[in-house]
Design a protein around this nucleic acid. Structure first.
Length: 568
DNA sequence: ATAGGGTTAG
């Protein structure tokens, strides 16, 4: 246009500027700014607003502010304020945003729904519930709380701040709901781990005749419907599907989806790497991580978490240490507590307990419960009572109600024959009114879920199941004697609670499936050493493969071996 | 004719 000698005017600039904003291109943007001044359009409200938005999107807040301040000669419109406020918010300059919002009130510029929408994302992180509620009150006063877009944002704010019930209340009270409203609430349940609520609300949405879009399916197991709806090329969905299939034990399907993706983002790589790590295939996880780097995708903090945890569970200690070092050196990433907990786990499993402890003490960042918890777990494996006591003392300061750590220390004492220690922990748990979650396992058979609790006798095949278990226990006992494996039950805490739920599920699976098929068992807690050994031996005796998914990962049992040594 | 905003992933 310029080459042709045609001069742009106030109508041209907003289009051009918006394109630069979308692409985050500050250089052509500032060139256009020069033209704006040359042609005397710098006071046109539409142009001013476009410029502010452009600079904000390129994180050049000072330039945006300059444009804003210089436009003060003309009447500043709500839209100018809105653009700059949202720019401040998106660049985490909360105070500037709030001050500007206040100034609107002083100067008497009208605030509208978009103003609130620009400001609300401040509160889309935990810890900002108080501010979010203030803004909600303001919206009510302004009569904007039922404007669909504002209400959508408020629902999101509540669920992201951990106040799901309040989000739902608001959701229920909305006279008009859009697709985004349903999606916001459904994903809110998903983010808070309320899977059954997700499915219920999804059904409700369908019954209301709301047609789902690509966003709705994130976190769902409805791949076919995704295809039918033509969303199978959506990267968000594919990333969620990779994660879902990996978590459900269908690693091959996860891999197929990953391989078919034309553009793999760091999220896609992280999902598949995490999947292999979860299944104990650390070698593949490491290969994929290196491949990712070769393909030019830059790892971020989460990608490192997935590869470090894969290394620790596969015993790749040196490899993991190298990655940890490269985080800072090559990628300038500051390791957070989540990385330190992986490293403590990695060193701890390898028996390098002192190094793990020194690593914790040497870090600048504040270790969280998981870091000390990893050390405690390593103490369990390597039977180090002294260090366990230290780790326990720290970990319960940070997570006083996490029952798992009490049980862990109690089992450490029990292994060491320290009954006094066991009693002390039990008293502690009683005093603090902490109760162990009941363990449960389930097997899915022809679309029906069969659930077992420890010592369960409610299943209609109970008699056969216990008969089968009796037989297996006898055979296992023989094998144990001949292989001279330490068969001491290390889950003393469970004594008196009857047969472990995973054993019941295994026996049920053997009774109801044909030879040659894998038996997949899901468990809510972590598998204990006793059951782990039991299942290992059973897999040898009956020549079947078992897959047990416990609270943290998958255990593939085959011919008396297991891919994963991570149990307690 | 032209400007500002909200939901979704590892």
């Amino acid at each position: 246009m310029l080459r042709f000698g045609v001069t742009p005017n106030a109508f041209t600039y907003p289009f051009a500027l918006k394109s630069c904003a979308v692409l985050s291109l500050p250089f052509p943007g500032s060139q256009i700014h020069c033209h704006v001044i040359k042609t005397g359009c710098e006071l046109e409200p539409f142009v001013v607003t476009s410029l502010i938005s452009l600079y904000c999107k390129c994180a050049l807040l000072d330039s945006a502010r300059k444009v804003f301040d210089e436009s003060s000669k003309v009447m500043k419109l709500t839209v100018c304020y809105n653009a700059l406020i949202s720019g401040y918010v998106l660049n985490s300059r909360v105070i500037d945003a709030v001050l500007l919002f206040g100034k609107m009130g002083e100067v008497g510029v009208e605030r509208n729904a978009v103003t609130m929408l620009g400001l609300l994302p401040i509160c889309l992180v935990p810890g900002f519930l108080w501010l979010g509620m203030c803004l909600h009150c303001l919206c009510v006063k302004m009569g904007l709380d039922f404007a669909l877009s504002v209400a959508n944002c408020l629902v999101t704010m509540y669920v992201k701040c951990g106040s799901v019930e309040y989000g739902r209340k608001l959701f229920n009270g909305m006279p008009e709901k859009g697709l985004i409203t349903w999606n916001a609430m459904i994903s809110g349940y998903a983010q808070n781990g309320l899977a059954t609520h997700v499915l219920e609300l999804y059904k409700e949405m369908e019954s209301f005749g709301v047609c789902p879009d690509a966003v709705t399916f994130v976190g769902h197991k409805i791949e076919k419907q995704i295809e039918v709806n033509g969303f199978d090329s959506n990267p968000f969905l594919n990333n969620a599907l990779i994660n879902m299939y990996a978590r459900c034990g269908h690693l091959k399907r996860a891999r197929a989806i990953f391989d078919a993706m034309p553009l793999k983002s760091v999220v896609s790589w992280t999902a598949i790497i995490g999947g292999y790590g979860m299944h104990g295939q650390g070698d593949v996880a490491v290969e994929l991580f290196d491949e990712m780097i070769k393909s030019g995708v830059r790892p971020d903090g989460t990608a490192f978490v997935s590869v470090l945890s894969a290394c620790s569970h596969a015993g790749l200690t040196d490899k993991g240490s190298d990655y940890f070092a490269s985080m800072k050196k090559q990628y300038g990433l500051q390791p957070g507590p989540e990385h330190y907990s992986c490293m403590v786990d990695l060193l701890g499993r390898a028996g390098r307990l002192n190094e793990a402890r020194e690593l914790i003490q040497s870090t600048q960042i504040e270790p969280d419960g998981a870091v000390w918890g990893a050390l405690l777990g390593a103490c369990k494996i390597h039977r180090n009572v002294e260090l366990a006591e230290l780790a326990f003392e720290r970990v319960i300061r940070l997570e006083p109600t996490n029952i798992g750590y009490y049980v862990l220390l109690s089992n450490i004492y029990s292994d060491a024959g320290n009954l006094e220690g066991v009693m002390r922990i039990r008293v502690m748990m009683k005093e603090r009114k902490l109760k162990k979650d009941p363990g449960c396992s389930y097997v899915e058979l022809k679309g029906i879920v069969h659930l077992f609790l420890a010592g369960d006798k409610s299943h209609h095949q109970t008699a056969e199941i216990y008969r089968m278990l009796d037989e297996l226990e006898n055979l296992v006992e023989e094998l144990r004697g001949s292989t001279n494996i330490d068969n001491k039950s290390n889950n003393e805490y469970l004594n008196g609670m009857g047969v472990h739920s995973e054993k019941l599920a295994i026996a049920f699976g053997l009774l109801n499936t044909s030879p040659g098929t894998d038996i997949v068992v899901m468990k809510n807690l972590r598998i204990c050493g006793d059951c782990h050994l039991f299942i290992k031996l059973v897999s040898k005796i009956v020549d079947r493969q078992f897959v047990v998914r416990d609270a943290t990962r998958f255990h593939h049992f085959k011919s008396g071996l297991c891919s994963c040594k991570d149990y307690w």
